[in-house]
């Protein structure tokens, strides 16, 4: 077996193929999708010599294991975890050569949520609308990995990068999300706005790639009634009827009918992707309307 492909030995809780997603189709109801922790995805690709658009695997909490059918250079970034090849410890955050038929195991996240596994050549499943990303909301792209899934690898683009140290901020002890005003800030009471910036929320275990859900005090609306559907942006802090803010992540719906009180800065969303359930969360409004 020397074909350029790998088989899934252990799929983990939720492992999906992710690249830079499929922006530009929101008007057709197609979410952006793509890796939630973009810097970690880019670093993994750089380490194995891939162009930044290459597709990688994104794991969730419990990692995954794969058996490449060809010798391949891989790198694991994002949530730190134990990496082994046929049971022997291997480096996290560095290029690792895996022999054909060996089992590469990306362990459970020691910290954070999502690890990224890049293969030299990238995961080469068929793109849909220009992207190989799994979109959990609309079902576009390859299905999440299951035991036995075989995925092809692309041709190697360049040599791996051997770095002495890789930058990694570490998952947040406390997640601080900076946000600007949302389109419907005025649908909320002054008290709700105060609550949003003073209360300590917690990251809810009910979150997923569609949105980071929160536990904490509900936000009270000043305007009742239904909001006609409107376009939603990445990072939108939408407030559903239960009053607990939801931060929209990559697989968010393109339109929605609940008011958006604030919009989180895009550069803070990578940290949101690594905040484990239970992590304290504060919103900081960077400007007032």
């Amino acid at each position: 077996m020397t074909d350029r492909a790998f088989a899934v030995v252990r799929a983990g809780a939720l492992t999906s193929v992710q690249d830079r997603g499929r922006p530009g189709h929101a008007h057709l109801g197609v979410p952006r999708s793509g890796a939630l922790d973009e810097p970690a995805r880019d670093l993994a690709n750089r380490l194995v010599g891939n162009p930044l658009g290459a597709a990688v695997l994104e794991t969730t909490l419990s990692g995954c294991a794969v058996r490449p059918r060809c010798a391949v250079t891989v790198a694991v970034t994002g949530a730190p975890c134990r990496v082994t090849v046929d049971g022997r410890p291997a480096a996290w955050g560095a290029p690792v050569r895996v022999a054909a038929g060996a089992v590469l195991d990306v362990g459970s996240a020691a910290d954070g949520v999502r690890s990224y596994l890049a293969f030299a050549g990238g995961v080469a499943c068929e793109p849909v609308l220009g992207s190989r990303s799994t979109d959990l909301l609309s079902g576009l792209g390859p299905a999440p990995l299951t035991h036995g899934t075989v995925l092809p690898l692309g041709p190697v683009a360049g040599p791996p990068v051997y770095a002495d140290a890789v930058p990694w901020q570490g998952p947040p002890r406390e997640l601080v999300l900076r946000a600007g005003p949302g389109p419907r800030t005025d649908w909320f009471t002054a008290r709700a706005l105060r609550t949003l910036v003073t209360a300590v929320y917690r990251v809810s275990p009910a979150g997923n790639r569609i949105g980071l859900r929160t536990e904490g005090p509900p936000l009270e609306r000043a305007v009742d009634g239904e909001l006609p559907s409107e376009g939603m942006v990445l990072g939108a802090v939408q407030v559903p009827p239960d009053g607990r803010p939801v931060v929209f992540l990559a697989d968010h719906p393109t339109t929605g009918g609940y008011p958006v009180i604030a919009v989180v800065k895009e550069r803070d969303l990578a940290a949101a992707a690594q905040a484990a359930p239970g992590t304290p969360l504060r919103f900081v409004l960077t400007e007032r309307r």
């Binding site: 922006p23 530009g24 929101a26 008007h27 006609p228 409107e230 376009g231 339109t255």
Partner: peptide
């Protein structure tokens, strides 16, 4: 602009 998303009474311009 990356996205032009019309909806019921709005148009979102993103990017």
């Amino acid at each position: 602009v990356r996205e032009i998303v019309p909806a019921a009474r709005t148009v979102l311009l993103d990017g």
